[in-house]
């Protein structure tokens, strides 16, 4: 690694001031697991890293609102989320997903904010958070804004965040009365990055599926919703037909994990299976 300056601000305002929108060699660092890989490989040679470790409790907590909505500080470690009783109760699919994500040591260090800001498509959480309707709260010198997770990543490793903008927290709307499931498909070893991740979230009212959200990750350039499949499901399509719709709609790309044609097959089968898992034990009309 090349030498760099490390600064450790004690407040958000100070941190924002230390970022430089015009210099890509200045970046914030949370857990640093992803940045370290890029730095060790020589892909990223920082001039300055702005550590977010000293920013205090505002971005390190997990809070549940009265309605069941969750606010999660950007510096919450993935392992902390995984073990949190609040998360296990209010959004258990997150804890279930994290168990399959990377490994215990990485999750002990990596943060939720960093995980999302990295914009890596081969991650497990983005499709899950998209299915849950989550938003990030981003701060910059010009103020604060909310960005839906589905709009956060624009292309491979490129996000909607400005060079002087930081994710400060993650907001997950109440999941009461909703059910969710995530299925990770790996093409090589079981501890591999996903070849495909499929997350579904939906409500069941009067034996009918309401407001389904179907999201995929890893097989596409960015994690995304599949609105046609959602519409088909709302319109009463079978799980298998919903899967077919998803496979037809998803802009799947081929890579080390498999060809696009094969991954389209996986999308269809996995969407169907994720719906089956989310709805296990529930009776649906028709």
């Amino acid at each position: 690694m090349t030498p760099f300056e490390l600064v450790e601000p004690a407040s958000l305002g100070e941190a924002l001031a230390l970022l430089d929108p015009d210099d890509p060699a200045v970046r914030p660092i949370g857990g640093g697991t992803a940045l370290m890989l890029m730095m060790k490989a020589g892909f990223f040679e920082p001039r300055r890293l702005v550590s977010l470790r000293g920013l205090g409790p505002g971005i390190t907590g997990i809070n549940e609102g009265a309605d069941g909505a969750l606010d999660i500080g950007a510096m919450v470690r993935l392992g902390q989320l995984e073990r949190s009783p609040v998360i296990r109760r209010a959004a258990p699919v997150i804890a279930e997903t994290l168990v399959t994500h990377s490994n215990v040591r990485v999750r002990n260090v990596a943060t939720i904010g960093g995980n999302l800001a990295h914009g890596d498509p081969h991650m497990d959480l983005p499709p899950v958070l998209i299915a849950l309707g989550a938003e990030v709260v981003a701060a910059s010198p010009s103020g604060e804004r909310r960005i839906a997770v589905e709009n956060l990543v624009e292309s491979y490793l490129e996000t909607a965040l400005g060079g002087d903008e930081l994710i400060t927290s993650l907001h997950i709307p109440s999941q009461r009365n909703r059910r969710a499931a995530y299925i990770k498909v790996t093409a090589r070893s079981a501890d591999d990055w996903p070849a495909l991740g499929v997350a579904v979230s939906l409500a069941v009212e009067n034996r009918a599926i309401r407001a389904p959200r179907i999201a995929i990750g890893a097989a596409t350039e960015t994690a995304m919703r599949l609105p046609k499949a959602e519409a088909a499901l709302t319109g009463g399509a079978s799980w298998r037909d919903t899967g077919r719709e998803a496979a037809a709609e998803a802009p799947v790309i081929g890579d080390h994990h498999g060809s696009a044609a094969y991954k389209r097959v996986l999308v269809g089968v996995t969407v169907e299976r994720a719906l089956r898992r989310a709805l296990a034990g529930v009776e649906i009309a028709g």
């Binding site: 890989l37 090589r188 070893s189 079981a190 501890d191 591999d192 990055w193 080390h256």
Partner: peptide, 16 residues
């Protein structure tokens, strides 16, 4: 060579 690392050249782990 497109996969010279354990990120893209996977070897068996305990779950395999």
């Amino acid at each position: 060579l497109r996969n010279p690392s354990f990120a893209e050249y996977k070897i068996p782990g305990i779950r395999d």
